[in-house]
Simulated assay, not measured.
Amino acid sequence: MTKTYNLEERTYEFARNCRFLIAKLPKTIQNIEDGKQLVRSSGSVAANYIEANEKLGDKDFVFRVKIARKEAKESKLWLRLLETQNPKLKEFINPLYNEADELRKILSAILNKS
């Protein structure tokens, strides 16, 4: 997976790749429910970062970046749960988990500079 340095594009790619992962999962109750949550949280990272860039002011920017960071942390939870249920898919899940953590760190750095 190559790194994208445009953060709007990178958050989009994260959400898209989470959806590709979900398509590979066996259709169990756990995978369906955790997959739905991952779809929401990964998409929310991207959506809130885009909204932050269309800010109405500095407070709005900080608020949206905080939400995006929170959703990145939440995505890590769903990915961990999915890995527990699907250890054979670890090679697909681990890079997404690492990307969620990197996005969280980047968003934290943005907040520290704001």
Rank of each mutant, 00 (worst) to 15 (best):
2 T>Y: 11
5 Y>T: 13
6 N>G: 07
6 N>H: 12
8 E>D: 12
10 R>D: 11
12 Y>A: 08
14 F>D: 02
15 A>Y: 00
15 A>G: 04
19 R>V: 09
21 L>S: 01
24 K>Q: 12
25 L>D: 03
25 L>M: 04
26 P>C: 07
26 P>S: 14
26 P>I: 04
29 I>Y: 14
29 I>F: 13
33 E>N: 15
34 D>N: 14
35 G>C: 02
35 G>K: 04
35 G>F: 01
35 G>V: 00
37 Q>G: 10
42 S>F: 01
45 V>L: 03
45 V>H: 00
47 A>Y: 00
49 Y>E: 03
49 Y>H: 07
51 E>R: 09
53 N>H: 09
53 N>V: 00
55 K>V: 05
56 L>D: 10
58 D>H: 11
58 D>P: 09
62 V>M: 10
62 V>G: 00
64 R>S: 04
65 V>Q: 08
66 K>S: 13
69 R>M: 09
71 E>H: 03
73 K>S: 13
74 E>S: 08
75 S>L: 00
76 K>A: 10
76 K>N: 09
77 L>P: 07
80 R>I: 09
80 R>C: 09
82 L>S: 01
82 L>E: 00
86 N>R: 09
86 N>G: 00
86 N>E: 05
88 K>F: 08
88 K>C: 07
89 L>T: 08
92 F>Q: 14
93 I>F: 02
93 I>H: 03
96 L>A: 01
98 N>C: 09
100 A>P: 01
100 A>N: 00
100 A>F: 03
102 E>I: 07
106 I>V: 14
108 S>H: 13
109 A>P: 03
109 A>F: 06
113 K>V: 02
